[in-house]
Write a protein that binds this DNA or RNA. Structure first.
Lengths: 219, 219
DNA sequence: CGAATAGTTGACCGATGTCAATGAAGGTGG
DNA sequence: CCACCTTCATTGACATCGGTCAACTATTCG
């Protein structure tokens, strides 16, 4: 699956990866080398209800974190790309499912009981909170095209703003992240193509042609 | 405005208020008495872009925290009731507006630069994150009636689950919190009344008659 | 090469939004 | 204390965006 995607071929991120996303350089750096685990596409990283014993940093690949309703409706609360850290919870249990979207490698950081980890964790938690709050605005008050625009801008910014955006996730994933159906996502992509705002090399690879138009919609 | 509401007449919460919401009792307790400020209904507590120099605990009253889009669309990201703490940000600037909904008194906690405040702040930030993530599911994947049900359950649980729920906020506020219009909120309230799931003493005071039915919808 | 999976597109439907009228409640000034 | 006025809430009629159902196309994998 997705053998062409740059996500699988991305350079591995080692110690310095914490510097991405402007996270504090000191975070966790004093701890010895942490174990790295590989997950094939679709593999479960953790499940709702499990004991939350570690947090994770994406070495390469991509992760989706989501909740399910009884009737199968799914809300993806976040995607995590190379360098990003996820998996902290308010209590010691997970309240989400996390899965590898593509072949993914994760570095685990155990939550040592005694250590004063809060100094390192707080900025990460606050950043995560900020992202969730940004997403609230999108889900609560944006139209379909604005949601997709905001999503593409976000993905582009997290990939270096080169104008070329890799989408490791399916249209269904995007829909479940944006509170839309797969059909609506697809139609919005088509509308953005028509208007020459984006170009699709293939369905998982987007080129942004008109940043200003996109930003105007995505706010 | 709302002179009848129990929110204005609620007993003041002093030092022990941190124990509400099962927040860590140690949080901030060693610090000397903190200044308390009064805000009349509608008063601004802080604005988007301001320097974030303190966090706040509601003594009595209620607060709405929100963002605005250029065209006036508003997303309320959270309401805060007596005992609850709000106002932390990922960086040192506010990215939201905060306003008193009714007559409100707040205790300010300055964010002392040197002090190791992260130990106290982390659990609060994580709780806030959890609430934002819960809300993401509601906005992304719930219908109008499910959103209102989830909202009422949440408000009831935060007010002691007595079955009597005070709503200090307007229908417009509720709509802007749930990603709905005021008309839809009003119609859903009417539908819940018809089905005898709730009863309205007045428009700001709800009695929950069928918890199970409400929980089933609100998940 | 063929089957399975993912994505796109079209026709139609329905939930929620918009616009408008009416009703209820609270605050203010006479 | 009452009457008016303003604000908030409710309700109805209609419009619209996005969802549903379905057919078709493209891509990937075996």
């Amino acid at each position: 699956m997705l053998a062409h995607s740059s996500f699988q071929n991305a350079p591995h991120h080692h110690a310095g990866a914490f510097l991405r996303n402007s996270e504090t350089p000191s975070a966790f750096s004093p701890t010895p080398v942490q174990p790295v685990t590989f997950f094939p596409a679709g593999a479960e990283i953790y499940a709702d209800g499990e004991f939350a014993e570690a947090i994770y940093q994406v070495e390469y690949g991509a992760v989706r974190v989501y909740r399910l309703l009884a009737d199968g409706r799914r809300q993806i609360s976040a995607f995590h790309l190379a360098g990003e850290i996820f998996g902290f919870e308010a209590d010691r249990a997970h309240h989400f499912f996390a899965e590898a979207i593509v072949s993914t490698s994760l570095r685990r950081f155990r939550l040592a009981a005694g250590a004063d980890i809060s100094r390192d964790l707080l900025p990460l938690a606050l950043r995560s909170l900020m992202r969730a709050q940004d997403h609230l605005l999108v889900l609560g008050r944006h139209t379909a095209i604005e949601r997709v625009a905001a999503f593409l801008i976000d993905m582009a910014e997290r990939q270096g703003e080169s104008g070329h955006v890799d989408l490791p996730m399916s249209r269904t994933d995007i829909g479940d992240y944006l509170g839309l159906t797969i059909e609506t996502v697809s139609r919005v992509f088509s509308r953005l193509k028509e208007r020459k705002i984006i170009r699709l090399t293939n369905s998982r690879s987007v080129e942004i042609l008109k940043w200003d138009a996109l930003r105007q919609m995505g706010e």
